[in-house]
């Protein structure tokens, strides 16, 4: 049985090969509102979040053939495009840099020399997270996935700010150690 992940990758392939509008609409309806929500969690106002989301969707329509299912999932690919686009726009404001540099859209950042299967990364992160103590895991979720600041987390959990800071710092350090123990180490 095909997983959701395969299904999304197939839809992107269909957009790339056949300019398949139905496939695109399904991707748009699934990911558009989620990218929009992700951007708003980062503090982007709703107008700008929708604008960036639309740019990400335009990229998906026009550059679908750049997606490589061996390197990442569709979710990860779109996540990175949205994240980088937002940062580029912030940078442009500051420097009034009008060059239309698309390099943030194409993933040019160096990956590990030895690329692991995209699905394996996810599985390993998930198993690494289950090995965190509960008190650290819940903070990692709030900080990384829900995007709360240290002080928001302190408010929400009732923990002192210093405790929040040190636990989160330790939790991520531990995550990295666990990944390394699992054979994901940076030095190849």
């Amino acid at each position: 049985m095909a997983t959701d992940k395969d299904m999304f990758a197939d839809l992107v392939a269909s957009v790339a090969l056949h300019r398949d509008r139905d496939a695109f609409e399904r991707l748009f309806d699934h990911f558009g509102p989620r990218i929009n929500a992700f951007l708003m969690r980062l503090g982007t106002d709703s107008g700008m979040a929708e604008e960036i989301t639309q740019e990400v969707m335009v990229t998906l329509w026009r550059k679908a053939e750049l997606f490589d299912r061996n390197k990442s999932s569709v979710g990860t690919w779109l996540f990175r495009i949205a994240r980088n686009r937002r940062i580029d726009l912030a940078r442009r404001d500051r420097f009034d840099d009008s060059d239309d540099d698309t390099s943030s859209i194409v993933d040019e950042s160096p990956g590990p020399d030895q690329i692991l299967d995209a699905g394996r990364y996810e599985a390993i992160v998930q198993s690494a997270m289950t090995r965190l103590p509960d008190e650290q895991l819940s903070l990692v979720r709030l900080a990384f996935f829900d995007g709360l600041s240290h002080s928001q987390i302190a408010d929400e959990t009732g923990l002192p700010l210093g405790t929040v800071k040190s636990r989160i710092r330790l939790a991520f350090a531990r995550m990295k150690r666990v990944l390394e123990e699992r054979g994901i180490s940076g030095e190849i």
Binding site: G111, L116, Y121, F144, G186
Partner: peptide
């Protein structure tokens, strides 16, 4: 190269959470 795997792994987790 030392942190590339770690970053890729977190990006995979963030992408999965987006879905």
């Amino acid at each position: 190269p030392v942190n590339r795997h770690y970053v890729r792994a977190l990006e995979a987790a963030a992408g999965a959470a987006l879905v």
